[in-house]
Amino acid sequence: MKTKKITLIGLLIALAFVLSYVEFLLPLSIGIPGAKIGLANLAIMVALFLLGWQEALMLSIVRVILVGFTFGNMAMMMYSLAGAALSFAAMLIAKKTKKFSITGVSVIGGVFHNVGQILVAMAVLETEQLIYYLPFLIVIGTISGIVIGIIASMIHKRIKGISNLF
């Protein structure tokens, strides 16, 4: 059973990596720094609901490091690590309260990912005016969170049946 779990985690890491690459190829060019669609969150959501938070956390960290070294630079890696960490913590809390479905958890993740990125950018650039982008970032995080959440719950429903194998 352990091998199957390792394989699944490896598969999800590869998926998160590719989704990050797709997102890198199609940047969200709407003139708002820090805005992300967060496609890779799909893989992390699936891991969080299917495997558990330790596996999802590992996936999240490995993804940021892989993507940072491959496509980005140190600065971008720092922004996205902060975003990933904050969004993961928020998603975990949201999931633990059991008040939200996958979609709700995903919305919280999307919003906090964008908020985390802009907070680090504010600290690094010493420009507190970046807070003005916050409303836009919340809206974008919400919309992408809804979409990712709906897709994640569809995937979860379909592979839940085989999840007891892991």
């Binding site: 008040k99 939200f100 479905s101 979609t103 709700g104 919305v107 919280i108 919003v111 003005y132 916050l134 409303p135 836009f136 919340i138 809206v139 919400t142 809804i146 959440g149 709906i150």
Partner: peptide, 28 residues
Amino acid sequence: MKRNDIILIAVLLVVSIGLLIGVNIYRK
């Protein structure tokens, strides 16, 4: 989607619209 999800989304949208209005007034 559960009821709580809808409430969450609505709250987020209201908060961001509120922030946006506040920011614009401050800027002007």
